[in-house]
Computed example of a mutant assay.
Amino acid sequence: MDLLALADFNLVARHGGFGKAARQAGRPKATLSRRVSELEASLQLRLFERGGRALKLTQEGRALFERTGVLLTELEEAAAAIASGGENPRGTLRISAPLLFSQMAMGKLAAEFAKKYPQVRLEVTGEDRNVDMVEEAYDLVIRVNPKPDESLVGRAFLHDRLVVVGSPALARPDKGEPVPAVVRVSGERAVTWSLRSPTGPKSIAVDPILKLSSLPMIRDAVRAGVAAGQLPISLVSHDLAAGRLVHWGDIDAPDTTLWALYPSRRLLSARVSAFLEHLRLAFPEGTPDELAAYVAW
C-alpha cells in the first residue's frame, strides 16, 4: 500500500473535504483527489461518497480512517521526536473539555502549559457533548463521570460534590413546604432535593421559579437572593467563606469526577503525557478545595 496516498486519504478524511484539506496542507486539490482515487483503485474500494455538497466516508472508508489515522500520527510524532533530538513535546494538542471546567480553569491551565512547552500549539474547545476523538481529531478529552468505554483509557484527576446553597436573607422552608429554587433549563427534573444527614437522606421540596442554562448563572441568581440552588462546592466555596451564601447541605449523590481520556490503542504522545502531568501538578489531591483555590487568582 502507498503510504503517501494513505496519508493524503487521512488528510481529506480528517478535514471533511478535498478543498479544506488542500488549503490546510497548501497542496493542489486536484493532486489530493487523484491520490485518493489511486488508493481506491488499488484497494478496489470506494472510500468516499462524493454525491452532493458534503463529502462523506463510506463504511469501508471510516474503518480505514479509524485504523490508520492514529498509526500515521504516531509515525509523524516519532519522526519529529527523533529530528528534535528527543521526546520534547511539540506539535498540535487538541483538547475537548466540559464547558464549566473550561470557563473556570482551562484558560489558566492552557496559559501555564504554553509557557512550559512553547513548541506545543494547544487548542481547547469547551463543550458538554461527547466528541468522537478519532473522527474529530482530538488528542485528549476531559469528561464528567464518563461511562465505561473500551476504546478509551485515562485517569481521574479532580473530584467535586453538589451542595444546596442560599442567600443568608433567604429563609429555609418549614418541613414539607417547597423552597423557591433556581434550576438548569435541562438536566434537572427533580421536584425534591435529597440531602445527606447523619440519620439518612432528608428531602427538601423545590419550586423551580427560575430556569437558567449555566451553573455560573445559577450561582449569580442565588447570590442575588431570589432562590436556593444546587451547585458544585468548588463554584461557591469562596462565597460560603465570605458569608455571601449559606450551606444548606450536601446532595445525596455520588461525587462528580473529571477524567482525562485518550484512545486506548494509541501510544501516548509526549505532548499528551506532558498535559496529563500538568493536570496532576495543578490538582495533586484532586479535591474541590484545590479547584476553588486554583481559579481564585
Rank of each mutant, 00 (worst) to 15 (best):
A181P: 07
L158P: 13
L170W: 00
T192N: 12
V153L: 12
V153F: 07
D149G: 04
E177R: 07
L195P: 09
R155N: 10
S167K: 01
L162P: 06
R189N: 08
R189C: 00
E177G: 00
K175V: 14
V191N: 07
A171F: 06
V164D: 01
V183Y: 02
V164I: 07
D149H: 05
E150S: 10
L158F: 00
G154V: 14
A169S: 14
S194W: 06
S186E: 14
D174P: 03
S194R: 14
A171H: 08
P168T: 03
G154E: 14
L195G: 03
V164E: 00
A190L: 07
P173I: 12
E188R: 05
R172E: 13
P178D: 04
L170S: 01
E188C: 00
V183K: 09
V153E: 15
V191I: 07
D160L: 04
D174Q: 09
A190N: 07
V183S: 11
V182N: 02
L158W: 00
G187C: 09
V153S: 12
G187S: 06
V179R: 00
R161N: 08
V163T: 06
R161L: 13
T192G: 09
G166N: 01
T192W: 12
W193L: 11
S186Y: 08
L152K: 06
R155K: 12
V183E: 08
R189S: 06
G154T: 14
P146E: 06
P178V: 02
A190R: 13
E177I: 08
K175C: 07
L152D: 09
S167N: 07
V191A: 11
D160P: 09
D149R: 06
R155A: 13
P146I: 06
R172M: 14
P146Y: 03
V163S: 02
T192H: 13
P173F: 08
W193P: 04
V182E: 03
L195H: 03
P146W: 01
D174G: 12
V164K: 00
V163D: 01
V164N: 00
V191G: 03
V179K: 00
D160S: 09
T192S: 14
P168K: 04
V185M: 15
A156G: 12
K147Q: 13
R184N: 14
L170R: 00
G176V: 04
S151L: 14
S151K: 15
A171W: 03
